[in-house]
Write a protein that binds this DNA or RNA. Sequence first.
DNA 1: GTGTCCCAATTTTTT
DNA 2: ATTGGGACAC
Length: 779
Amino acid sequence: MAACRPTPIVLACTAMNFDLFQAEQAQAETDRLTAGLNTEQARAVTTTEGPLLVLAGAGSGKTRVITHRIAYLVERCGVPPWQILAVTFSNKAAGEMRERIELLLGEASADLWLGTFHRIGVRLLRSFGKHAGLASSFGIYDRDDSQRMIKRSMAALNIDDKQLRPRTVASYMDRAKNRLQLPDDPDLPRSDRTELKCAEIYARYEAEMRRADAVDFGDLLMRPVQVLNDEPTLREHWGRRFRYVLVDEFQDTNHAQYELLRLLTAGSGNLCVVGDDDQSIYSWRGAEVQNILSFPDRFAGATVVKLEQNYRSTDVILAASGALVRQNRTRHDKTLWTDQKGGDLIAIHEANSDSDEADWIAQRIEALRGEYSLSEVAIFYRTNAQSRSLEEAMGRYRLPYVLIGGLRFYDRAEVKDLLAYCRLALNRDDTASWLRAVNTPKRGIGKTTVGRVEAIASAQSISVPEAARRMVSSHERFRGKDKLSVFVELMARIRRLIDNMSADDAGGRILEMSGLRRALQQEQSLENESRLENLAQLVTAMGEYAQSAPDPTLGGYLEQVALVTAVDRLDGEREVLSMMTMHAAKGLEYDVTFVCGLEDGLMPHGRPGTELRDTEEERRLLYVAMTRARKKMHLSYARLRWRFGEQQLQTPSPFLTAIPRDLLDRQGGRRGGFGRVARVGGSWQAQTTRPSRSWPKRATRSIQRDDGTVVEQIAERTETEEVVVQRQGTMAAGSQVKHKTFGAGQVIDVAGYGKLARVTVRFRTVGVKKVLARFLQTT
DNA sequence: GTGTCCCAATTTTTT
DNA sequence: ATTGGGACAC
């Protein structure tokens, strides 16, 4: 098949000898598909052959480019949709993209492969997972399930989960998988005791996962790559399967994703990636900006298109965010521009406390309500914990909101319980689900019995559910056998019954048979009522799924659920405002935005000693947040913030100094900009780019109490309201401290501040340990 | 085997 | 402030 060439038109797609009429038609078609695009966008759409890098600044219309490019490939070049793969960052983005493509293409769009990397990974593994030792019914483990497996693995290896936190192990394995390193990889980090232990646990964990026929998020990327590398026939097939591959948000891809793309485009070489190095905010998750920065080097002959015209924001918003991100050293130089000259100034507000800040935001929203729909308003913050005071304020002002992130619906205990039964029904070796379901609701199978089953599973190298089945059918007698039998038989019955049922029918039956509903109904309480409601809602969701999905089975539903993200639930239609972390804000846009909590240590988030690279990523994160606004942006920070269960004094974010003063409209609070000038003896120290290690010096009165803690009173506030801030006595290297259990010792190093500081102490009796400052007392 | 109480740790961001 | 886990009592 001939390649589709953009220009000149006479050389286009299908046949050699086509007449002028066809040429005109083709031109007309091209015009239709590039209508309303600027020159560069049109070039990105029509440059179909070979590697293509689209450097797309914030709001430069990259989604348009991708959708039009797909339409162009199908309509103008006659590429069958099933030969096109488009990868997006979130399921929501995928959904929106599918909608837009449907408008352009109609029915034909159904065959298109479109989804997140993880979803593509699932699809590939369902197709060839057996080459990775997976049955087709394999389950997908979320963080919770996978943590459970880590704990099991640690227990089996006799490693104390207090000495080595499962979280540490999880992130070690995550990193390994993002780098495509299997447990036997000689390059796995093994430089210290922790890493050695992690590597050991990793191997064990993989074995446990295999027995449970389960994969985690990392596997969804690593396994497909591994299989394609190992199996020449499959590699050959899949390398040719897609003639055109498009990737959105390329700056946030990790090594595994990059390799997957390389394998899937080996045949055609038609890889189009779209991204913006200034918006790379997931390096902590293994994303490598290098993937986008060195794309032209790695893919010889790549075309590079730069989109620098912004269609989203006012000039003011662009200027402010541009001034901020320009401070980063490691970036491609580029400047966004817009036709929308001028615009409202950026409102900036200094609040006394986090709740005052939230109140101010609520008031502003209330005032803007006539002018803007609530669905066009969003609040962004750095950490999920900040949502609390905001939620309270929105409640006080009766402003309806949706909270994106935080506790997901699918994270609720009762929902996970029912889902565990469902998963176990489909995958009889699903260990994590078995452990969850076995005694929920209570059926008298406790630690002892479960421990016995786990021991047998380990001894015989089989899954935990399989061990239970064998124990039940063997002649051996033991206490608790009857109860275990009841559960094993229950699962067998469920399994038989739901075969061939639709997702909601199956879900409903399982809700009954498992006894979950009865247990919740038996004990009447408000909580249980809401739990029952949630479960009913879950079954309803299954029904909605079964109605519309091509695969209406329970299995199909579970697969979808496993990969649902917080943002996916966002619904632009409802007349409510949105609140989310800055990370979740990526790819979204609103008329009116509030970026709050702009304080040192919170934004940029970090501890002292934070590296430049991290600071730059924080700056990019704020840049992403700021570029979400179309018309009106608000920035705010509080002087006093409730953090870690105590009030903490905050200083404004050093990032604020980057924003030109004449773009700001200061609302209340102190006057002037943020400059680097210290107010000697006053409230604010000179702003540094690094979070300060000590508390800001203020006009304070300190009182030493009997127990050694220092109570500070902030003089300038005592007239109206007394604010008491507690802190531990100064803990610097060398000072003598005392710990409840470890006894006396000497401080070697301090990292972090306040009560959450991590202090390294050499204790007289137990040696060197890291402890939290709040568990120490100065002596 | 279950329930309760108390202590320790928690807060980056997430597919 | 909230949560999870372990120790202990029943």
